[in-house]
Design a binder for these strands. Structure first.
Lengths: 272, 272
DNA sequence: GAGTGGTCTAGACCACAAG
DNA sequence: TTGTGGTCTAGACCACTCC
C-alpha cells in the first residue's frame, strides 16, 4: 500500500508558506535562492521554481531578477467608499485620507470628445455613437500607479454649459454633484458594480502589478432621477484597495414582522 | 543591433490569447495539446506548458488532466446586491433570481455556540471571548460550490429569545430584519467591505476554484443604530459574482453650489 | 492502448544586480 | 566576478480520460 505523496513542489511551497504566515519569514525578508532550495530539498531547478511560482500566484512573494525572492510587502490598503462622491470637495475623500497618511497622490487626465461606443451609449441611455465627453484618468500614490479609470458624460447634457469640461471653469475639480447642480441636474444616486478578476496584460502593465494580484473592476453610474448622467469604468489594484459600502436600510412598514408584505417599495428604482 | 525578442512562451501565449479573444477559439473549445504546440512552434514541452500557464493565470483557460486544455466557460454571473437583505423574504433575492434562471441553489449551515475571537468581538462591540452564535454556511449552485460564509451574532442580544437560532422557530429563514424586529431591535444599516485577492489553498479547495480565479472577500456588519447586531465573513468565487451597490446620495443643502459647506451631515454615523 | 496533462531531471545560457 | 532569477532543451515517467 502506498501512502499519498503530494508533488515535491507542493511540499516545498507549503513549507515556505508556513514560514511566511507564522512570521518566521518576515515581510520583506528574502527567501532561499532557487539553487539553495535545490540543495536543501534535493530537487532540480524546475521543481524549486514551481514551488516559488505557487507562492507568487498566491500573492505572497515577489521575485526580483538578479536579486532574489522576497516576502511581499503589502502596501497599506486604501479605504474607498462611494461616500467620497457625496462630499463636494475638491478631492475625493480617499485622496484626502491618503494625504493625511503622508502619501502623495497624483493624477493625470486626458479629455477627448468622441462618439459613445455601444456599451457606453446603453449605460448613458443615449444612442449609439452619440457625442460624449471621455476622460481617462491615471492615479498614482507615492509615484506608484494604483488605479485607472475611463469616465463618460453625454454631451447632450453638458454641451455648451460651463461644466462641459469637468476640470476647467468655475466648478473645476469640485466633484460631480456641484457640477451638475449648477446646470440644474440633481444627481441623486450612484450605482456601482464590482467585479473581481485577474488583470489583462495591458492592465498588468499600466498598474505595474506583480503576478498573482487580481484587480477590482468597478462599473459606476451616476443618476439624476431616471436619467444616467455619468458612467465610468474604474480598475484598482486588488491588493491596495478596500471598497467600503455603507447603506441605510429603507423601512416602509411598521416594526411588526407580521406586517411585512411580499414586496416592498424601493426608494430608488426597481430592486436589483 | 538586436531586435527585441520576447520569450517564446510569451509569444505562444499571445497567439493563443488572440484566438480566444477574437472568438476563433470559442468558449469550451479545446486548445492544441502541449505536444502539438511543441511541434507547431518548435519548442520543448516546458515552454509550451509555460504558455498555457500564462493563460491559466489570466483565468482564460482551464486544464483537465488526461483530456486537454479548454477555453473557460465563464459561468453566468450572479448579481448580488445588499438590497437582498432589505426584503423580508424567506430567501435572499439572488437565490430567487438564480432559481428563476433555472438554477438549483442549495445551502448547508452549521450552528455552534462559542466564544467570540478578538476580531469578531471587536466587530460586534462585545468583549473578547463573549458568548456568540456562529453559523457556517456553504452555498452551491447546480451542485457547484459558489460561496462560503461565517456569520456571528452576540448571544447577549439573542440569548433566550425566540430568534436565538436563526433557522428554527417562528421566524426561521425569514431574514435578519424581521428576526431582529421581533425582539424590538431595528436593523437599520449595513456595512460591507470588499476585498479582492487570491484564494488561500483552503478556499481554493472549498470553492473548487481553478487556478487563476480570485475571490471577493466581504466583511459585512448589520447595525441597529450604533450597535452592531451581526457580522459575517463571506467569500465568493470572483468569476461567478458581480456585486451591485446602489445608493441614494443624501442631500442636505439647497441646490446651489455656492451653498456647499466643507462638511455635511451624514444620515448614518461618521463618514468613512 | 493511445493521448493527454502533471511532474521531474540535469543540465545550459541569458539578463540583471551588486560588490 | 559572483550570484540571482528567467528561459529553455530533450528527454523521462506517472495519472488520468477515453475508446
Amino acid at each position: 500500500m502506498h501512502t499519498y505523496e503530494p508533488p515535491a513542489y507542493i511540499t516545498i511551497a507549503a513549507h515556505l508558506r508556513d514560514q511566511i504566515t507564522t512570521g518566521a519569514l518576515a515581510k520583506g525578508a528574502r527567501l532561499p535562492s532557487e539553487r539553495d532550495l535545490c540543495d536543501q530539498h534535493h530537487v532540480s531547478g524546475i521543481t524549486a521554481r514551481a514551488a516559488i511560482n505557487c507562492l507568487r500566484q498566491e500573492g505572497l512573494v515577489e521575485t526580483i531578477r538578479g536579486k532574489g525572492v522576497y516576502v511581499r510587502h503589502v502596501t497599506p490598503l486604501v479605504r474607498l467608499s462611494p461616500e467620497r462622491y457625496f462630499r463636494p470637495h475638491d478631492r475625493p475623500t480617499w485622496v484626502a485620507e491618503a494625504e493625511r497618511a503622508g502619501r502623495d497622490v497624483q493624477y493625470t487626465h486626458t479629455l477627448t470628445q468622441t462618439a459613445a461606443p455601444p456599451d457606453i451609449a446603453e449605460r448613458l441611455g443615449v444612442e449609439d455613437g452619440a457625442p460624449a465627453t471621455r476622460i481617462d484618468y491615471a492615479f498614482t500614490m507615492d509615484d506608484e500607479p494604483v488605479s485607472t479609470s475611463v469616465c463618460w458624460e453625454p454631451l447632450a447634457l453638458t454641451g455648451g454649459t460651463p461644466i462641459q469640461h469637468p476640470h476647467t471653469g468655475p466648478l473645476a475639480d469640485r466633484g460631480i454633484i456641484p457640477r451638475f447642480d449648477s446646470i440644474g441636474v440633481r444627481v441623486d444616486s450612484i450605482h456601482e458594480v464590482v467585479n473581481c478578476r485577474m488583470p489583462t496584460p495591458g492592465e498588468s502593465r499600466a498598474l505595474r502589478l506583480p503576478s498573482g494580484v487580481p484587480v477590482a473592476a468597478i462599473t459606476q453610474t451616476f443618476w439624476a432621477g431616471e436619467r444616467p448622467v455619468e458612467t465610468a469604468d474604474i480598475v484598482f489594484a486588488g491588493d491596495r484597495y478596500e471598497l467600503h459600502y455603507r447603506m441605510p436600510i429603507p423601512r416602509f412598514t411598521p416594526v411588526d414582522p407580521a406586517a411585512y408584505a411580499d414586496e416592498t417599495v424601493w426608494p430608488w428604482g426597481t430592486p436589483l
